[in-house]
């Protein structure tokens, strides 16, 4: 068995996870495929330096870096969290009654998730769709676990708001 076969066994089997993250970051098929293809080829080049550990986390970190590199817009650490803190003050967006009224269907969830800033979108996708632990998300996004926790909290509040706002508009 050669390196290619080992790479397949360890890394390529996480291609769905790679694509899911890339697709939600890029928000269209063509860009997502470009990101995944480049990420997997980069992963193969770096595979010699991969010293065990969780291959999925390793690959997803490369996918994420590839996406932001292609966009040349790696988010500044913490910026989104501070920004959101500023607009977060009011209680009205988080009125539990209003939140409970909504009946989220898949299309609205999809649209609301797509409207979130990528920094929020990625932690939600990793947590809710990929089932990653906070520790795994921290490794993938290169954030501290505490930041993952607060960003996930804000991401969910923001998503909740998006869902509520759409309901009011409708």
């Amino acid at each position: 068995m050669d390196t290619g076969a080992i790479f397949e066994r360890e890394v390529v089997r996480h291609l769905d996870a790679a694509y899911n993250l890339a697709r939600w970051l890029a928000r269209n098929d063509a860009d997502a495929e470009d990101v995944v293809q480049e990420a997997v080829l980069r992963a193969f080049r770096f595979f010699g330096g991969f010293r065990g550990g969780d291959a999925k986390v390793w690959l997803l970190a490369i996918v994420r870096n590839t996406f932001y590199t292609q966009r040349s817009q790696l988010p500044a650490a913490g910026s989104v969290d501070e920004f959101d803190e500023a607009i977060h003050g009011g209680e009205d967006h988080d009125d539990p009654q209003a939140v409970l009224l909504r009946a989220a269907d898949a299309q609205r969830l999809h649209a609301a998730l797509e409207r979130l800033p990528p920094e929020f979108r990625e932690v939600l996708v990793l947590r809710e769709l990929e089932g990653c632990s906070y520790k795994e998300i921290a490794s993938i996004t290169n954030l501290k676990i505490g930041t993952v926790m607060s960003r996930l909290a804000r991401a969910r509040e923001r998503l909740q708001r998006e869902l509520t706002r759409r309901e009011v508009a409708a």
Binding site: T3, G4, N20, E33, V36, L41, F44, H110, L129
Partner: peptide, 20 residues
Amino acid sequence: ADLYRHAPAALRTRIAARLP
């Protein structure tokens, strides 16, 4: 909500062709 996006077969093929 079935939001998980699976890798398309064409992408798998393309990547396979470019790996050793």
